[in-house]
């Protein structure tokens, strides 16, 4: 019997072209033993929800630096719910003003990582969410 692998989708919705952060996170999660599906730049929320479904991921990670997170993140959550994946935790990384965080959490985002959060912290949070998701 193989151990169950944690699968994570790392996606960049919206139009900004900076994917360095997303790649660094993807690499760190890989080094932590997870399987990371990386979708590349300029994904629509529809593309992200479709990839999450086909890849049957345990956690979705969004990287948004464009400032459009208040529109994009809730839309991804909505589409995931529509496709029966409402139990899949979604985390958000990027430049997110602190005052937006409570509203994002209210909308259903499980965690928000701003600049300066350690890689170890991100890995630990995602692993924790993947395990909780499995039990629900």
């Amino acid at each position: 019997m193989t151990e169950r692998k944690i699968r994570v989708l790392i996606a960049k919705p919206g139009l900004d072209g900076h994917d360095r952060g997303a790649k660094v996170i993807a690499r760190a999660l890989r080094d932590a033993g997870m399987e990371v599906i990386y979708t590349g730049l300029r994904q629509t929320p529809e593309m992200i929800a479709e990839a999450a479904l086909q890849e049957d991921v345990d956690v979705v990670g969004l990287s948004i630096l464009s400032g459009a997170h208040m529109a994009l993140a809730p839309r991804v959550l909505e589409l995931l719910r529509d496709s029966g994946m409402g139990n899949v935790p979604v985390v958000l990384g990027g430049i997110i003003p602190p005052e937006d965080v409570p509203r994002l959490k209210e909308a259903g985002i499980s965690a928000v990582f701003g600049p300066g959060v350690s890689m170890a912290e991100i890995v630990k949070t995602i692993r924790g969410l993947a395990v909780t998701g499995e039990q629900s």
């Binding site: 690499r27 890989r30 990371v36 599906i37 979708t39 590349g40 994904q43 629509t44 593309m47």
Partner: peptide, 20 residues
């Protein structure tokens, strides 16, 4: 990865046109 057992799966990057 033979070291961590993790993997970076990046083939979807080249298949984005098939989405939807």
């Amino acid at each position: 990865s033979p070291f961590s057992g993790g993997a970076l799966l990046g083939d979807r990057v080249r298949m984005r046109d098939l989405s939807g």
